[in-house]
Simulated assay, not measured.
Amino acid sequence: MTLDEFNTLDAHEASQALQLCCVSKQWINGVLLQRPYKDLASLRRTANSVWSNLAREDYLEAFEGHPKIGDVNSLKAKYANSGDLAAHEQSGVAQASQSLIERLASGNQRYEERFGYIFIVCATGKSALEMCELLEQRLKNDPETELQIAAEEQRKILQIRLEQWQ
């Protein structure tokens, strides 16, 4: 997808393109309202601005669009049409040992039980061990602090995905 292509899509197609970056309907609608974009920088600024004004429910909706870190089956199911975006982002997990994958799975379960949503981390450039250590560290956060951290991680992810729209 290029920015020029995005600008010329009809609203439904543009919405689908944005869903590959983030599934929050409020975020998608806010970004769509500002089309067309003169350059990628203006799209990215708008994406950040809209993101920063979302409500808790919108963040939680966005988190639902993510596979669990290290869950290969979840990656395949949720991102079958995304050009392997999430699989590439989580490539550090592909090299992990079975014991580390199990540690991630256990941590994910504890995290979801504690906070009510899956662990969100911008996995790009991180090893499985780094993600596991971040997960275990963030389990100590209070719910409000953790929601803000998870939202910031989601913002980083959507920005990385938008950067690919050269």
Results as ranks from 00 to 15, higher is better:
30 G>P: 00
36 P>D: 11
97 S>N: 11
131 M>Y: 08
76 K>F: 09
89 E>F: 01
33 L>H: 07
131 M>F: 06
48 N>G: 15
140 K>V: 12
128 A>H: 11
128 A>S: 10
83 G>I: 06
93 V>S: 11
56 R>N: 05
50 V>S: 09
81 N>R: 14
118 I>H: 09
20 L>H: 02
6 F>P: 02
2 T>N: 15
14 A>Q: 08
113 E>S: 06
164 Q>W: 01
74 S>Y: 07
131 M>L: 14
92 G>T: 07
107 G>C: 04
10 D>S: 03
139 L>G: 07
93 V>Q: 05
24 S>K: 09
87 A>Y: 05
3 L>C: 02
135 L>Q: 05
22 C>A: 11
136 E>Q: 06
15 S>N: 10
106 S>T: 12
65 G>R: 13
65 G>W: 03
105 A>N: 15
153 E>M: 12
55 A>L: 14
39 D>R: 04
16 Q>P: 02
22 C>V: 04
101 I>Y: 04
87 A>L: 10
111 Y>Q: 06
28 I>F: 05
102 E>K: 09
154 Q>C: 09
72 V>P: 01
66 H>C: 11
58 D>M: 06
59 Y>I: 04
118 I>S: 09
134 L>C: 06
134 L>S: 11
100 L>W: 07
75 L>S: 02
103 R>W: 14
79 Y>F: 15
81 N>C: 03
3 L>V: 05
5 E>A: 15
86 A>W: 09
85 L>P: 05
90 Q>Y: 07
112 E>V: 11
99 S>K: 08
23 V>L: 12
115 F>Q: 08
65 G>Q: 07
85 L>W: 14
109 Q>C: 07
46 T>P: 00
53 N>W: 02
25 K>H: 09
136 E>L: 08
135 L>K: 10
9 L>Y: 14
29 N>M: 02
157 I>Y: 12
